[in-house]
Nucleic acid binder design. Structure first.
Length: 424
RNA sequence: GGAAGCGUAUCGAAGAGGUCAUAACGAGCCGCACUCGAAAUGCGGUUGCCUUUCGGGGCACGUGGGUUCGAAUCCCACCGCUUCCGCCA
């Protein structure tokens, strides 16, 4: 959520930044409502001041034995007027809130202005894509042939866009999760969290998934709960409506969770394999930072995710998303893209973003700076570290052998309990 | 799911229709004094939000309603916590 004061004071500047996202968004309506609200507020607050003043007099006058019936009658009428105005202010407040919740974050002024992912800027590459001297197979064929992935039965059990891991495949998935969590907790300083996989509406609003992206979410029938689309939601919301100590910042939290996405509007895209499913596993990193420190933390966050790919020996590149491609809540995002041989291109495997105070404002997370004493919103960041299904797919494809077997990457071997190669 | 009790500042907690909400009292935190330094002790400070013609004004006692001239206080609903009962991995 943007600061209404910032919009009020620099409407042109904010509007210009928002235009860079290719949104035809006008701030006129919210500015108009804000103006109307403040006028009504002054009016009703003057009446309330009058009420308070008179109410204080009443017991004194009674004590003196004076007749107060005329005053009480007057006050009754005033109370009626106040009630009406209060409702009007509240209605305007709700409209303003609704407007604000639907306005995306302003992009960082320094990132490339562009219309789509074609304008994204490659920052760096690591690793050399492997040259195959045999006919390579896609992970959905490799996995099925090795009997470690079963898409058909997952579809039978549930429906399309679900997958199932089996035997050494299930173990490999578990190994990937354990490796990532160990790296983040033991080497990168993160605290491991195992959060709820369902969240309430306030949490979804807090991180920006709602109210705008309802159709992307799975919602429960009998309660106002949602299946989490990413651990970002429960973890960022841990300290919703709380005040933190400055000495606790920056705060690093990591969580493994399944993620549930309706994938509305992506019919026909990436329909084979593990790339785009309704349920997938992910290890997420969430950071709370001080405002002046958040961009330095974004670089760290991105590096932490890169460390995982380096550790697994998977070639990747880092891309800075342009203004037209960053997410609703983000001010700046780096995507990590892993080399996927079957696609013959790099495929997104992590997204690392600085949300500045956009989410903190929605979820009301503040800290008390030692010097100033006045409460300030924290900055929130998060990044995948990494998407597990896609990592699994990348390992299968990049580590495949001519006979269809998969060599286990060195760093995962301790987690595989003696399995060095997956064969039939 | 049923019953009872309880939600007040960073924490514990008092208040039970108006003169106790810049919120008693205790703790914490910050500053000062004492000290070589620390602890202990003493003194002082310490809620947030909205609005403003920068003098102020308003709001908030879990949330939302109601009663009243006036509600932390009375009534209703919802949410959460605790205890007991039931059920359950």
């Amino acid at each position: 959520m943007l600061d209404i004061k910032k919009i009020r004071n620099n409407p042109k500047e904010v509007e210009e930044l928002l235009k860079r996202r290719n949104s035809e968004l006008s701030l006129d309506k919210v500015l108009e409502l804000d103006q109307a609200r403040r006028e009504k507020l002054v009016e009703v607050e003057n009446m309330k001041a009058e009420q308070n003043r008179v109410s204080k007099q009443v017991p004194l006058l009674k004590k003196e034995g004076k007749d107060v019936t005329a005053i009480l009658q007057e006050m009754k009428e005033l109370a009626e007027k106040v009630k009406v105005l209060d409702v009007e202010v509240k209605e305007i407040d709700e409209k303003i809130q609704e407007e604000l919740l639907n306005i995306p974050n302003t992009p960082n002024p320094d990132i490339t202005v562009g219309a789509s992912d074609e304008d994204n800027k490659e920052i760096r590459r690591w690793g050399e894509p492997r040259k195959f001297d045999f006919e390579l197979k896609a992970h959905w064929d490799l996995g099925v042939d090795l009997d470690i992935l079963d898409f058909e039965r997952a579809t039978k059990i549930t429906g399309t866009r679900f997958s199932m891991f089996k035997g050494a495949g299930a173990r490999l998935e578990r190994a990937i999760i354990a490796y990532m969590l160990d790296k983040h907790t033991l080497e990168h300083g993160f605290t491991e969290i195992s959060p709820p996989f369902m969240v309430n509406r306030d949490s979804m609003v807090g991180t920006g998934q709602l109210p705008k992206f309802e159709e992307d979410m799975f919602k429960l029938n009998q309660r106002d709960y949602y299946l989490i689309p990413t651990a970002e939601v429960p973890v960022t919301n841990i300290y919703r409506d709380e005040v933190l100590d400055e000495k606790d910042l920056p705060m690093y939290m990591t969580a493994y969770t399944p993620c549930f996405r309706a994938e509305a509007g992506s019919a026909g895209r990436d329909t084979r394999g593990l790339i785009r499913n309704h349920q997938f596993d992910k290890v997420e990193m969430v950071m709370y930072a001080k405002p002046e420190d958040s961009y330095a933390q974004l670089e760290k966050l991105t590096n932490f995710a890169e460390e995982i790919l380096k550790g697994l020996g998977l070639p990747y590149r880092v891309v800075e998303l342009c203004t037209g491609d960053i997410g609703f809540s983000s001010a700046k995002t780096y995507d990590l893209e892993v080399w996927m041989p079957s696609y013959n291109r790099y495929v997104e495997i992590s997204s690392c973003s600085n949300f500045e105070d956009f989410q903190a404002r929605r979820s009301n997370i503040k800290f008390r700076p030692k010097e100033k004493g006045r409460l300030e919103y924290i900055h929130t960041l998060n990044g995948s570290g990494l998407a597990v299904g896609r990592t699994f797919a990348a390992i299968l494809e990049n580590y495949q052998n001519e006979d269809g077997s998969i060599t286990i990457p060195e760093m995962l071997k301790p987690y595989m309990r003696g399995i060095e190669k997956i064969t039939l």
